[in-house]
Amino acid sequence: MDKKNQRPEFHGSDLEKIAAYYHIPASEIPGIIKFGANVNPLGLSESVKNDLAGHLDIISSYPDRNYTSLKKTIGEYCHISPEHIVVGNGSTELISLLISQRQAKKALVVGPTYSEYERELALTGGTITEYNLKEDLNFQLDLEDFFASMAEDVDLLILCNPNNPTSSAIKNRDMKHILNFCNERNIFVMIDETYVEFAPDIAEITAISLTDEFDNVMVIRGVSKFYAAPGLRFGYGITSNHDFLEALLIHQNPWSLNSVAAYAGERMFKDNTYQQTTRQLICSERDRMYTAIQNMPSFKAYKPYANFILVRILKENLTSFDIFEAAIKERMMIRDCSSFKSLDGEYIRFCIMNPEDNTHLLKLLEQF
């Protein structure tokens, strides 16, 4: 049997499963540093937390069915018309709605990437194909090769930008070429921007500004990672394709987003202090960690645009699982990337945490 296939498979939220496997006492589980979850280490904004705590009576009322005030706030945050916005029960619901309503006969997914896209596509009965980013190009997309290799019958393209797990990104100018190419061939494009707010320059990466020009695209975001609120289940999508937007709303359950999420969402997008503090922390620590790993001969780090770094192991006979185990014994949970489809080789991924935790991880990696 392949050595990779003998390893236990853990994901970013598998703390209890990991603790059971390594016989870690329940009392120690909260102390494990979650480098595998890609969530903002600052946690939920204190001002949002306090505001929310004082307004929990909103649970006794239905949210506005049209989410008018929330969409206005998102519009201001994203510099886009509120009429182009749909909100939902996490980005997962919107991804599912988009895929089910497009009814793609042949979808193309740029990988290696998040496995949930393929799961949703499989439910629609369409054919799924992949275009894999190349390691020798540092997982940066080669537009010429990408366009040349795209089959004629592709009708849905799915991109994660910045991409998970590679942390690579397609810049706005190249995304415009992609949307134009796809528009000419009647291909709809879904862009998952879960991590875009962590990018060194958001405007350089986000495709939201292109949604006014192209109606063959929907950009999907959420608050799970940047705003450290995965339990809130709040996502939003942006498209100027009003026919498609209406179709989504028809098939979406009413009041899909609860009152608490709608209220908290408005406060999050207006919390400039939290946004700036987060970006200062992530940008400075990401640069520090990336530079440090570049100086370690056992590893190769790829230029990161998200709040995590993908690292290839160059040292012979050292596996990603070896490092995962060494880290968990130090009560740090990183991501062993052996389960990512089409990611050949030995890779680990870890997100940016608080400076002292990052230093602890770097010291561990230096031992190898």
Rank of each mutant, 00 (worst) to 15 (best):
N172Q: 14
A107C: 05
H360G: 01
N66I: 03
G235D: 04
P297M: 09
Q294R: 14
N161V: 08
L108P: 01
D64W: 08
W255F: 15
E193D: 12
K363M: 11
G126N: 02
I170Y: 08
A326Y: 04
S259I: 03
T124H: 05
F139T: 03
H84Q: 13
G265Y: 05
M150I: 13
E266A: 04
I250F: 11
Y290A: 09
Y67I: 03
A326G: 01
E93D: 12
T206A: 11
H79L: 09
V154K: 07
F269W: 12
D212F: 03
D287N: 12
R7C: 05
G265D: 08
P112S: 12
Q294H: 13
R331I: 02
I95N: 00
E204W: 06
H84K: 14
I352E: 04
G12D: 09
P200F: 12
S168D: 11
L343P: 03
P162Y: 04
P230W: 07
N307W: 08
S240W: 03
I99D: 00
L343M: 15
G36D: 15
N161M: 07
H11T: 12
E197V: 02
Y195L: 12
I187Y: 01
G36I: 04
P162C: 10
V311D: 03
I250N: 11
F181H: 14
Y347V: 09
T239K: 10
F146E: 11
A199Y: 06
M190F: 09
S298K: 07
N354W: 04
R331F: 12
P200Q: 11
V217H: 05
N253L: 11
N50P: 02
T277Y: 02
F10G: 04
R233E: 13
Y263C: 02
V109I: 15
A228S: 15
M268G: 02
L310A: 09
L108V: 06
H55V: 00
E152G: 03
E213P: 04
N183A: 12
I208C: 06
L249Q: 15
D287E: 15
P165V: 09
A229V: 02
N180W: 10
E130T: 02
M1C: 08
Q367G: 10
F214R: 11
P304T: 11
T239W: 08
I191G: 05
I202D: 06
N138V: 02
V109Q: 05
R173G: 01
S61Y: 15
S81E: 12
T211V: 15
A301Q: 07
D243A: 13
Y195H: 13
A19W: 10
D201F: 10
A37M: 08
T239D: 13
F10A: 06
L44D: 03
D271A: 04
F234T: 01
